[in-house]
Design a protein around this nucleic acid. Structure first.
Lengths: 184, 184
DNA sequence: TCAGACATGTAAATGGTTACATGATTAT
DNA sequence: ATAATCATGTAACCATTTACATGTCTGA
């Protein structure tokens, strides 16, 4: 069986939900998968074209009064099968991020202490903002969608984000203190 | 001032150490920056060419008996300045990883419980392996290079890796139990 | 009338990996 | 002989982002 990029499987997966158009896919990713997956229109529309070509989905034009026409995509049995085969594959790569802060800190020697500390502060602020975003999404799910069939899995991925972000925030505090107490 | 990619700054930074050749840069990154930065020869050599063109470094051919000739790169004052300007910039983007496991788990609905659990187990194993690697590197630094001027910064970046990886491992345990106890 | 949400798409550029090509030297 | 390490480089390919282009409809 032909293999696709993860991005293609992401789109295939989203087409199992109520989201059926390129625009809706973008919205879902921005709102719900944003902390572990991103995608641009420049990939969505060409990918949708591809999966139709390969018989994994079919298109239909839908109209709603007062809104522009939409192209709705529906998975074919072959599409569902392709998604399931990928889901059952046990091999996942653990991500290895490119971390700009660590890169700068690695060359900390060539930097003033103040500038290292400023870097840490900025980073921590961004992490805390991210943490609060996760909490807000979590609360939203608990309040509005707790009975939704996917809610458990959404909460699991959020929990991951919170734990990892939390650990990074603790590292910031610890490192700030360590660098700050260092004599010049 | 012209801006460069992070990869270019990484190379600029490495050229401040004893590593002066494309080959040595690759080795340093693979050994020491590997957990937060990666690079291929396909980028190193063209980038070295670029930074020479831009007057950030100068090349010299060096010979050692019994080894092939090397091209050694030395930062110019302009190169050091370019690096410092980048280091002092306080704006760092927090990385947002593409996480294949979370993507698959997000569509957990369309997967058997067994397959979700197998995914978790495989992921945890890889994380534990990574954690042990960090510990080994840390021990190596403490034993052999604890007095090296860069040792503090190396240990700080390793600490980040350990904390974040540790949090992810805990999430694996927690999620495994949660999914396992779930009635079918 | 004008901003903003809804909606679809393409082309060019960017950043990066992989595969290929070459060749010296050392140790087995 | 030959595998391993040292060493440099290019070309093709891939995934992804950004900028651009177009247009509808609603509500302020």
């Amino acid at each position: 069986m032909k293999t696709y990029t993860h991005t293609t499987y992401a789109i295939l997966g989203i087409l199992t939900t109520e989201c059926k158009t390129g625009y809706a896919i973008k919205q879902l990713i921005d709102n719900s998968l944003n902390h572990f997956w991103k995608i641009s229109y420049g990939q969505i529309y060409p990918t949708l074209k591809l999966i139709v070509q390969d018989g994994l989905a079919e298109v239909q034009t839908a109209s709603t009064e007062g809104k522009p026409d939409r192209q709705e995509y529906f998975l074919t049995p072959k599409g569902i099968d392709t998604l399931k085969v990928w889901l059952e594959e046990p091999t996942v790569q653990i991500p290895s991020e490119k971390n700009e802060l660590l890169l700068k800190l690695f060359f900390g020697q060539y930097q003033s202490k103040e500038s290292s500390l400023a870097l840490m502060t900025g980073y921590k602020q961004k992490l805390e903002e991210r943490y609060r975003t996760y909490e807000a999404i979590e609360q939203g799910i608990n309040e509005h969608s707790s009975t939704h069939k996917d809610a458990l899995y959404w909460l699991i991925t959020l929990d991951y984000g919170k734990r990892v972000t939390g650990a990074a925030i603790e590292w910031c505090d610890h490192t700030y203190t360590k660098l700050n107490s260092k004599e010049e």
